[in-house]
Design a protein around this nucleic acid. Structure first.
Length: 423
DNA sequence: TCTGGGGTCCTAGGACCC
DNA sequence: TCTGGGGTCCTAGGACCC
């Protein structure tokens, strides 16, 4: 059996950990640049505040109801996430961290009769040790465990936050209660199509044949989904040591950018972030792609930005920030169109290989040991002290384009100077 | 005035090979 | 006059996830 442990309203819950007065009160957390609402507590949901809705459209509702609002504080969420995952690792031999707020757990060692009790124990332990409330779904497959988890979340008091789908009867009942668009793996396009075929619930979908799914539901993806709904596992637990195949850093600007110089600073800064991620997983990349999003002739009603991108393959894979910046700058210059209003830029690193397996190019000098040493020192200093205390000059110093984060809480757990003060 | 960021996997189609 | 079959590899783009 597999379990999925999912933190309830994770970002908002993190804010509550250090501000207990917010318990029982509506709380929302905004995306970068304070643009959209990305996390809401039950109280905020009850007020009709929509997930992923633009902040400014919900502002009235929020102010009238005294909803607590926070900019996203990734240092805090990242650290509390790590604490939750560390706790789960003590409770199961195999944990697959699926996202910042959820993990799949292997529960195959637990007796069938004790599954519910054990899932409840997982829930209570996690909440006690970290302060983050979670819901637990248990079932023979990942897709069914997601169905179970959703039901546990929907009815927290009735289910105690834990749902186990063990018997066929339990599974049938759960599938009947689940609409197709609420199935993990069925998105907007899929659910629209399924509804047209009169497939309205997960139970309806489960009863379609594999051949039908192969033809109508994205080939092997659809077949896998049907099998998983039928209790036949085909999405296995992932090896925790897998490295990322693509690394991206992309941001909206805090305000529109018109100057090439500022665009280049932003891209150099994003490359700095992306190459840190690259080095953290001991990898190197040989594909570099840059994109700029501009929003010219912007219609009042319609939000329709367009983007231009460009990419190059490097002579050999690298993880050196300065080398990547040097390759990126000409791309930015080529993409830049004087007079355009830029609202976002991004960097994507691809062709990722382990850094001890770099194929050197015959015609290029391999990276010197000194350069590697320097990179490690920069990372160590930036990590242990303050972000970006050491940086490349091309990343700029003023950063007029930096995103807005006007309501960010303190980084209580990762910065000495921001520790919580208890009187 | 104002709409996030970072990933994965799959498929179709083109280029190329013998 | 008649113009194959079977593969691999790569890329772009779509769908989906949180």
């Amino acid at each position: 059996m597999k379990a999925i442990v999912d933190c309830n309203s994770f970002y908002a819950a993190c804010e509550r950990v250090f501000k207990p007065s917010l318990h029982g009160k509506p709380v929302v957390v905004l995306s970068n640049n304070d643009g959209c609402i990305v996390s809401r507590t039950d109280e905020a949901k009850a007020l009709g505040i929509q997930m992923a809705g633009p902040y400014y459209q919900n502002k009235k509702e929020i102010e009238e109801n005294n909803v607590a609002v926070f900019s996203s504080n990734y240092h805090l969420y990242g650290d509390l996430s790590r604490r939750v995952m560390e706790t789960l690792r003590l409770l199961s031999p195999q944990v697959e961290v699926y996202s910042v707020d959820e993990s799949f757990l292997d529960l195959s060692g637990i007796d069938a009769g004790e599954l519910f009790e054990y899932a409840l124990f997982i829930k209570h332990t996690t909440e006690l040790w970290t302060g983050i409330p979670v819901s637990v779904g248990v079932a023979p497959t990942k897709v069914l465990s997601k169905v179970a988890n959703r039901l546990a979340k929907k009815d927290k008091s009735g289910t105690k936050g834990v749902v186990v789908l063990q018997t066929l009867e339990q599974q049938i009942e759960a599938l009947r209660k689940t609409a197709v668009e609420d199935i993990w793996g069925v998105g907007h396009a899929g659910s629209k199509m399924l509804r047209m075929f009169n497939v309205n619930t997960a139970w309806d979908l489960r009863n379609r044949s594999e051949q039908w799914a192969r033809k109508n539901l994205g080939g092997v993806v659809g077949v896998r989904l049907i099998k998983e709904l039928n209790g036949m596992p085909c999405i296995e637990m992932k090896n925790p040591l897998t490295t990322k195949k693509m690394i991206a850093t992309t941001r909206m600007f805090g305000k529109p950018v018109y100057e090439l110089k500022e665009l280049k600073e932003a891209v150099a800064t994003y490359i700095t972030r992306a190459s840190e991620k690259l080095r953290r997983q001991s990898s190197a990349a040989s594909a570099l792609s840059i994109f700029l999003v501009h929003s010219d002739n912007r219609n009042q009603q319609e939000y329709a930005p367009s983007s231009r991108s460009s990419y190059i393959t490097l002579p050999s894979a690298t993880y050196l920030t300065n080398v990547l910046i040097a390759h990126a700058m000409p791309l930015v210059e080529a993409l830049y169109n004087s007079g355009s209003k830029y609202i976002k830029a991004g960097v994507v690193l691809g062709n990722i290989v382990p850094c001890d397996m770099i194929q050197f190019n015959l015609f290029e000098a391999p990276e010197s040991a000194n350069a590697k040493q320097l990179m490690h020192m920069v990372d160590n200093i930036n990590f242990s002290m303050r972000n970006d205390i050491l940086k490349f000059a091309s990343a700029g110093t003023k950063k007029n384009w930096k995103m807005r984060q006007e309501m960010r809480s303190k980084r209580f757990t990762t910065r000495w100077e921001e520790l919580c003060i208890v009187k």
